[in-house]
Simulated scan of single mutants.
Amino acid sequence: MHAFEAAFAEFDPDATVAPVVAVHLTAQQRRSEQPVHRHRKGQLILALRGSVTCHVPTGLWMVPPQCAVWIPPGMTHSNRVSQHGQVCLLFVEPDTAPLPEVCCTLSISPLLRELILYLAAQPTDYSPDGPTHRLVGVLLEQLGRMPTEQLHLPVPAHSRLRRIADALASDPANRSTVAEWAQQVAMSERSLARLIKAETGMSFGRWRQQLHVIVALQRLSAGMTVQRVAMDLGYESVSAFITMFRKAMGKPPGRYLAERNRGEG
Rank of each mutant, 00 (worst) to 15 (best):
D12M: 03
F8R: 12
Q34Y: 10
H24G: 00
H24R: 09
E10A: 15
T26E: 14
A6G: 01
T26L: 04
A9S: 10
A9M: 07
Q34F: 08
V21W: 03
V36I: 15
E10P: 00
Q34V: 09
F8K: 04
R30E: 15
A7L: 05
P35V: 09
A18W: 08
F11H: 13
D12Q: 04
F8Y: 14
F11D: 11
V21Q: 07
D12F: 08
A27F: 13
A6F: 03
V21A: 02
D14T: 13
Q29A: 14
Q28H: 15
A9K: 05
A6Q: 15
A6C: 00
A6R: 15
L25W: 12
F11T: 08
V20E: 01
E10K: 10
P19H: 09
R30F: 11
S32Y: 04
E10V: 10
R30I: 03
Q34A: 11
V21D: 00
R31W: 15
A18E: 09
P35I: 08
V17Y: 09
V17D: 13
V36A: 13
R30H: 13
E33H: 09
L25C: 02
A6D: 09
D12W: 01
V23S: 04
F8Q: 13
A22C: 06
A7G: 14
R30Q: 15
A6P: 00
E33Q: 11
E33F: 03
F8V: 07
A15R: 12
Q29I: 00
V20W: 05
Q28C: 10
Q34L: 12
